[in-house]
Amino acid sequence: MIDTRVKSPILAFFIRYIFFFITIFAVYIFLKGHNAPGGGFIAGIIFAISLVILNMALSADEMKQILHYDPLQIATTGLFIAYGTAIAPVFFGYPFMLHKMIHLHVPLLGNLHVGTPVLLDFGVFLVVVGVTTKMTFTFSHSS
């Protein structure tokens, strides 16, 4: 693997903080998706962008060490989660893809309205991250 990194100490130093910041932002967008602009797809791309920026500063094997799964595996697990949430209600006798909302009262955060759509969203999130990173990495590492 030819070393395609942009060798600059400043970038190397800053890159971790930027990656960390964008990841938090992606998680924030993902969680608020159900009630305000956001959602799995957008959060997925933001996280993919942060990975790509990281990829520019780090060499291939460092990236593998950070992301120790092959991105395509991430995508397929996302697919698996999405299909799982769709099929699960059938086992409980409910119609296909019926979403169940759970209202629980968490002492610290007040009452939370979590539901299965979040799981489906998470599936979409993983798929988007897996797909984008897989393509970008194959392009940049294979030269």
Partner: peptide
């Protein structure tokens, strides 16, 4: 159960 119509439609 979500107020963001765009996301509820998608999901």
């Amino acid at each position: 159960g979500g107020s963001n119509a765009v996301n509820t439609v998608v999901v």
